[in-house]
């Protein structure tokens, strides 16, 4: 038992390193065996392609560390940005359109938070229902089109997704910035520390006087805010937003990034560093598979298998605590 515990502790601490090692190994293999992988252009493309995933991963990480999950993050990401574009197309000024789009995201986040914290609906159900509600409501009432294009007059914000600073695409820099802010928030602010406390042992955090309910609402609001930012970056990068992304497997990629990086789903562990590591691994993998010309559907199968393996390993490394796990905590 003792040695099991020790080796498990080592593994937990080292999961991030193991994933990093795998990422580096894959990187080296691909560099050697795949033509064009190592080129600067491809590497920038690689990071850029997963920077959105990484940003969403940061938002997801806030909830997962607090033993929650946000399955509505992709729906908020897509629908709030799509509505912004639609409003702009309809002649609403860009700042106002952005404000309204953000308010949609914010409302979804607040409702999520209230449902989880005050109504005590399990986060999985609350956000699963919210994903469907946000998508359905936006499609029904706000955004009649499947794909919304950016209006020509919005060139003022096009730099967000399309610009470069010293040759580095701005989405990558924004990913870095959001990761840095997220890291600072989790490490150095009181609410950030409370998130860890809640994720580690909700009941203990509560009776110690942590404002658990407001903190949970805050988590959801942060995640919705980040989702909106990511949505705007995507929208400006590709000059459109495809609302079908809500029904794609993107949400699983976000979970994959977080879990693979080593943030345990049982909460209280990990940090933004894990998100970055997970993002890089997924980026390398996807990029490599694309260069190897692996069929998209097969890529999906492979990603599914990796996610399954990641969850199995996660549940072995971070077993659910029988004392703090609740009946019906599924």
């Amino acid at each position: 038992m003792f040695w099991g515990g020790v080796s498990r502790a080592l593994l937990v601490r080292d999961q991030e390193k193991v994933v990093l090692l795998i990422a580096i190994t894959l990187f080296c293999c691909f560099s050697i065996f795949l033509n064009g992988f190592i080129s600067a252009g491809n590497l920038l493309t690689l990071v850029r392609s997963v920077s959105i995933l990484g940003i969403l991963g940061v938002g997801m990480a806030f909830l997962v560390i607090g033993r929650g999950i946000d399955l509505s993050i992709v729906a908020i990401y897509a629908m709030s940005a799509a509505w912004t574009l639609h409003l702009a197309n309809a002649g609403v000024s860009i700042p106002l359109a952005m404000l309204l789009g953000y308010l949609l995201a914010l409302a979804a986040g607040v409702i999520n938070g209230v449902l989880i914290a005050y109504v005590e609906v399990p986060a999985l159900f609350a956000t699963l229902g919210m994903a469907s509600l946000v998508y359905g409501f936006a499609r029904y009432a706000l955004v009649p089109l499947v794909v919304v294009y950016m209006p020509a007059g919005a060139s003022g914000i096009a730099w967000v997704g399309g610009g470069f600073v010293f040759g580095v695409p701005i989405p990558i820099l924004l990913f870095a910035l959001i990761a840095l802010l997220g890291h600072a928030f989790l490490r150095f602010t009181k609410p950030g520390r409370f998130i860890y406390a809640i994720g580690d042992n909700f009941a203990a955090a509560r009776i110690s006087g942590a404002p658990v309910r407001p903190i949970i609402v805050l988590q959801c609001v942060l995640s919705a805010t980040i989702a909106y930012l990511a949505g705007m970056i995507t929208a400006t990068a590709v000059s459109s937003m495809d609302t079908n992304v809500t029904n794609s497997s993107m949400i699983y990629d976000v979970i994959l990034v977080v879990v693979l990086g080593g943030i345990g789903l049982s909460g209280g562990r990990g940090g933004i560093r894990n998100v970055i590591v997970g993002t890089l691994l997924i980026g390398i993998l996807l990029n490599g598979m694309t260069i190897m010309n692996v069929q998209y559907t097969l890529q999906n199968v492979i990603r599914g298998l990796i996610l399954l393996a990641a969850i199995v390993i996660d549940s072995i490394l971070n077993p659910r605590d029988e004392l703090t796990a609740q009946q019906g905590d599924i």
Binding site: L115, V119, V121, G129, L133, V134, Y135, G136, Y140
Partner: peptide, 23 residues
């Protein structure tokens, strides 16, 4: 009703049902 409506209603009813169940 247009597309999205059934998604919206399903999501809403799901949230309502689970909230009632939990409470």
């Amino acid at each position: 009703l247009q597309n999205g409506a059934s998604s919206m209603v399903t999501g809403f009813v799901l949230l309502l049902a689970i909230a009632i169940d939990v409470r």
